[in-house]
């Protein structure tokens, strides 16, 4: 059986997943090497079998993110934080210095252009509770590897993935770490 990879996007913009697709034709090679388990690529809702590598885009901004992250930690041998949002909270974490109440009021109640005469804040039971702040993944579960960048370059993703699949310690080339 081929090793399995799972990926997910938590509080991210899917840019990191775009960067995964950016490995271009190497994706065919990847398909030979691995099978994809839970991932936005195939829309599996849960991990089905133990995975060699789990890749996380985005940090945790609501309780569902936390549950997904727990599922990944429980079922993946190696967990990788992919991109700045997963590593440090990124753009969504800009709200961390503003009280949650103020964020919700500004988003749904008192902002020019909002039409909300009954003053409702979305509150269906289906909607996961938002957390008091956005957490980087390693503050919630143990993370084994980090690939920085917003989004990380496809080469960095490729290098880390192949290293992990071949049982080597991943090293990211300096060129893939410097952005200026």
């Amino acid at each position: 059986m081929k090793p399995r990879i799972a990926t997910c996007s938590l509080a991210g913009c899917f840019g990191c997943h775009m960067s995964i697709l950016d490995i271009d034709e190497r994706i065919l090679k990847l398909a030979e090497l691995v099978d994809f388990d839970r991932s936005p690529i195939n829309d599996f809702k849960h991990i089905t079998t133990r995975c060699a590598v789990g890749i996380i885009e985005g940090g945790c901004c609501n309780e569902e993110n936390v549950h997904v992250l727990h599922e990944f930690r429980e079922n993946c041998d190696n967990l990788v934080s992919l991109g700045d949002c997963a590593i440090s909270g990124g753009i969504p974490a800009l709200r961390n210095n503003i009280p949650l109440e103020e964020c919700l009021e500004t988003a749904y109640l008192n902002n020019p252009g909002i039409y909300n005469p009954s003053g409702i804040v979305p509150n269906d039971e289906e909607i996961p509770m938002i957390l008091k702040k956005v957490y980087p993944c390693h503050e919630v579960v143990k993370i084994d590897y980090y690939i920085p960048g917003c989004p990380p370059p496809a080469d960095a993703i490729w290098d880390v993935l192949t290293a992990l699949l071949e049982g080597r310690a991943p090293v990211i080339a300096y060129d893939s770490l410097k952005y200026d």
């Binding site: 009280p99 949650l100 509150n123 957390l131 008091k132 702040k133 957490y135």
Partner: peptide, 11 residues
């Protein structure tokens, strides 16, 4: 982590 949220939406 969800206490603030629960208080705000009241459930």
């Amino acid at each position: 982590a969800v206490v603030d949220s629960e208080l705000f939406v009241g459930r």
